[in-house]
Lab assay of single mutants.
Amino acid sequence: KRPMNAFMVWSQIERRKIMEQSPDMHNAEISKRLGKRWKLLKDSDKIPFIREAERLRLKHMADYPDYK
């Protein structure tokens, strides 16, 4: 399994928030909203998620050196 990218790290947190506020919302609608919100997010606000994704990528490389 591939490591999460910055969007996936961010969306995992945000998806939980949306599901708590709107438990009846369909997953497809949540995904659309997350995509739009990520695009509107300032680059500076994305930095912590980019760093976490990089950390996960490096850990994945160390844990699975033969992964292609």
Rank of each mutant, 00 (worst) to 15 (best):
K1Q: 01
R2A: 11
R2Y: 05
R2T: 04
P3H: 12
N5S: 14
N5G: 07
A6N: 00
A6K: 01
A6C: 02
A6W: 00
A6S: 04
M8K: 08
V9A: 04
V9Q: 02
V9S: 01
V9H: 02
W10I: 00
W10T: 00
W10L: 00
W10G: 00
S11T: 02
Q12E: 14
Q12F: 04
I13Y: 04
R15E: 05
R15K: 13
R16H: 08
R16C: 08
R16S: 09
R16G: 07
K17H: 05
K17D: 04
K17S: 04
K17E: 00
K17Q: 11
K17V: 06
I18G: 01
I18W: 01
E20M: 08
E20F: 03
E20L: 07
Q21F: 05
Q21A: 09
Q21Y: 03
P23G: 04
P23L: 03
D24V: 04
D24C: 06
D24W: 09
M25N: 02
M25Y: 02
M25S: 05
H26E: 14
N27S: 14
N27P: 15
N27E: 15
N27F: 07
A28E: 11
A28C: 06
E29S: 03
I30Q: 02
I30L: 11
S31I: 12
S31D: 15
S31R: 10
S31K: 12
K32R: 12
K32V: 11
R33S: 11
R33K: 14
L34H: 01
L34E: 02
L34N: 03
G35L: 15
G35N: 13
K36D: 05
R37W: 02
R37M: 12
R37F: 02
W38M: 00
W38F: 00
W38Q: 00
K39S: 13
K39A: 15
L40Y: 06
L40S: 14
L40K: 13
L41P: 02
L41Q: 01
L41Y: 01
K42T: 13
K42D: 07
K42I: 03
K42G: 07
D43M: 12
D43Y: 13
D43A: 12
D43S: 08
D43G: 07
D43C: 05
D43H: 11
S44G: 05
S44I: 14
S44W: 05
S44N: 08
S44V: 09
D45P: 00
I47D: 10
P48N: 04
F49R: 00
F49W: 09
I50E: 13
I50N: 07
I50T: 06
E52V: 03
E52C: 05
E52K: 03
A53N: 07
A53R: 00
A53L: 01
R55V: 07
R55E: 06
R55H: 07
R55T: 09
R55D: 10
L56K: 09
L56H: 05
R57E: 11
R57M: 10
L58S: 13
K59L: 14
K59Q: 14
H60C: 08
H60D: 13
M61V: 12
M61D: 11
M61R: 10
M61E: 10
M61P: 08
A62L: 09
D63T: 11
D63V: 08
P65N: 13
P65R: 09
P65Y: 10
D66C: 05
D66I: 10
Y67F: 15
Y67C: 12
K68E: 10
